[in-house]
Simulated scan of single mutants.
Amino acid sequence: MKKLRIGVVGLGRLGKVHAQNIAYKIPNAELTAACSIVPAELEYAKQELGVTDVYSDYREMLANADIDAVVIVTTSSEHCWQIEAALDAGKHVFSEKPLGVDVAQCKQAEAAVERHPDLTFMLGFMRRYDKSYAYAKKKIEEGAIGTPYLVKATGIDPEAFVDGAIRFAKTSGGIFLDMAIHDIDLMRWFLGCEATEVYAMGATFKHPEFKEAGDDETGVAVYKFENGAMGMVHVGRTAPYGYHVETEIVGTEGTIRISAVPEKNQAMVYNVNGACTECVGSFPERFAEAYLIEMEEFVNCTLEGKQPGTNVYDGTKSTVIGYATTEAWKTGKIVEIK
């Protein structure tokens, strides 16, 4: 069996998920190199993943590692130049979202992808590969809810991880670019058209450190789409009960709700607190299968010489919307999305 030799750059929480999938769960992939500026992460690659070819310099890995492809799981602001460098070095590329933190960066990545049509590029909008979201898309295409005209999305990270969010706030691009990109992508996907206007606001009630970093702990945005459809997004970082993600698509003939209760499993505990369902604890736990399926898609597309369904232009369009949402949030005005 031919195997795709992959180097991963970035071994934080999500980087470890991708690295473990490549190393242990995808038969036609092989994790042959790892790169990180954090020494402990390189030690993790050696001890837990069995990777001996490790680098603290990304360009050195591109030049010297025995790899066919790169999986980029670094800070959002680093994605685009790393995508360009890898493609120009002749490597296939999978990059985590967002594509970039501004439109200029995204155009840089677009140009690199267009220069190398023979190489596979995929952007990590993993919710499209979650079985529930994929099922919803299929039902919409089959006409199960008529014409979809409203998408309502909620995504709130757990309070348990708020310290990391605070540390990341200064370089995240703001709450909407950081946290709403998946929901923005899903709105475009489910409604089948582009957003034209956005109004947004934010608030901080619990952790003033977000305000000090020029960010907010909670944000709400409302969108108008080119066909008259609407979107609503609520994102936050302080859910006390776990990781809360849900999506509702409303159509002329029905509604689809995904994860209305962020259940950990189907068990219910009956005790002095009542009838209780434990909530899923984090996004790697909730979307574990989706992360595996999307990486399998990248590997298979690369080996077969195909391009995946999520491309660089999806990344640019979502970033354009995210950037406009950030502008609306900061100015308090309705912003036209061009």
Rank of each mutant, 00 (worst) to 15 (best):
G7H: 01
K16F: 00
H18C: 02
A19S: 15
A19C: 10
Y24E: 11
A40W: 12
E43P: 06
Q47Y: 00
V54D: 06
R59M: 11
A63I: 12
N64W: 03
A65C: 05
I72N: 03
V73R: 00
T75S: 13
S76W: 12
S77Y: 15
I83N: 07
E84S: 12
E84Q: 14
H92L: 08
V93E: 10
E96G: 03
D102F: 08
Q105Y: 04
K107G: 00
A109Q: 04
E114D: 14
E114F: 14
R115Q: 09
M122H: 11
K131T: 15
K131V: 15
A136H: 05
A136W: 01
K139Q: 14
K139N: 07
I140E: 01
I140C: 00
E141H: 04
V151R: 01
V151N: 01
V151K: 03
K152M: 09
A153E: 07
D157V: 08
E159F: 10
E159V: 12
F161H: 09
F161L: 09
F161P: 00
A165Q: 13
G174L: 03
M187F: 04
R188A: 09
L191Q: 03
A195F: 08
A200V: 01
P208S: 03
G214E: 02
D216K: 13
T218W: 11
A229H: 05
R237F: 08
T238V: 13
P240L: 04
Y241A: 11
V245I: 12
E248D: 09
E253K: 15
T255V: 15
R257P: 09
M268W: 12
E278Q: 14
G281M: 13
E285F: 07
E289P: 00
Y291L: 11
C301G: 07
G305N: 10
Y313I: 04
G315Q: 05
W329S: 08
K330G: 02
K330L: 11
E336D: 12
I337R: 02
